[in-house]
Design a binder for these strands. Sequence first.
DNA 1: TATTGTTATACTCTATAACTATA
DNA 2: TATAGTTATAGAGTATAACAATA
Lengths: 152, 152
Amino acid sequence: MTDHDVRLAEAERLAGLLIGIVEQAKADFSETVTALGLSVPLARAIIGLTEPVPMRDLACELRCDRSYITSLADQLEERGLLTRVPGEDRRVKLLALTDAGRAVRDQVAAAVADRHILLRRLTDDERRVLTPLLERLHGDGTPPSAHTGGFC
Amino acid sequence: MTDHDVRLAEAERLAGLLIGIVEQAKADFSETVTALGLSVPLARAIIGLTEPVPMRDLACELRCDRSYITSLADQLEERGLLTRVPGEDRRVKLLALTDAGRAVRDQVAAAVADRHILLRRLTDDERRVLTPLLERLHGDGTPPSAHTGGFC
DNA sequence: TATTGTTATACTCTATAACTATA
DNA sequence: TATAGTTATAGAGTATAACAATA
């Protein structure tokens, strides 16, 4: 094995860990919200609605097309978890959680926090070491569009 | 904000970084292999085929159903990148890259390594600090089935 | 003319169930 | 009876394009 191969193999191993961790976290999230009767995209939408938000803004936050937000909003409205309220600009509709929706969101937030892998598995000190490394990895040599996927 | 909220917010921020990093890495991978004319699942299959492998084993490695491997193998076979060769146990088929397939795999491997975020953005020292933290995060309080998704 | 949300449609990834050939 | 691969089908998630209303 050449030096180059060794470096690559090490990077692959780290990448595997990283991907494994994120997959674990996503699986946790999925299991948690499924137990509460929500799909993952529905739960992500609900969590994004701490206050009434134009559909376009939610699309930006979830990094998806506006048409997909329409479909998510339809489903949540059918379940009585949100309503569309007209904005000042009359093209805009704000998505606002109903009382039932807020109750569900509180449940989801509590359950998700409870199982949070980063709180369960690392000490405060370890998080303090980890944070700057992740910041460097995440770091910004990238154009903004790389973060928004062109949805904002 | 309560103490609890602060801890949760910090964890959410770390989780966001982690997810962002992995999404960036996946986007890099996707862009790289798309430029070489491959979809992500096809590229993952090719990379898994350093040597001839029973379809069931590839399913295990990629953590997907055997029926999906059939479909991936069909596509790669159509393009002349692999062939099915009968195993000793005559129920088994080995997937083996053709010469063209090996050429593509070498290209993919080189291109992926070249853009590897973990090699581009971190020093050796930083990787030495990062590794044990990721190991603890990934760590094994989890049953083996959580890693295989029931496909092995 | 540009933007918001909607509709209709279609694509990708992936699983399930039933099947066959073999063990 | 159990296992390897195949087929047909279906579902989740999500995008694109054309459109109506409003700015």
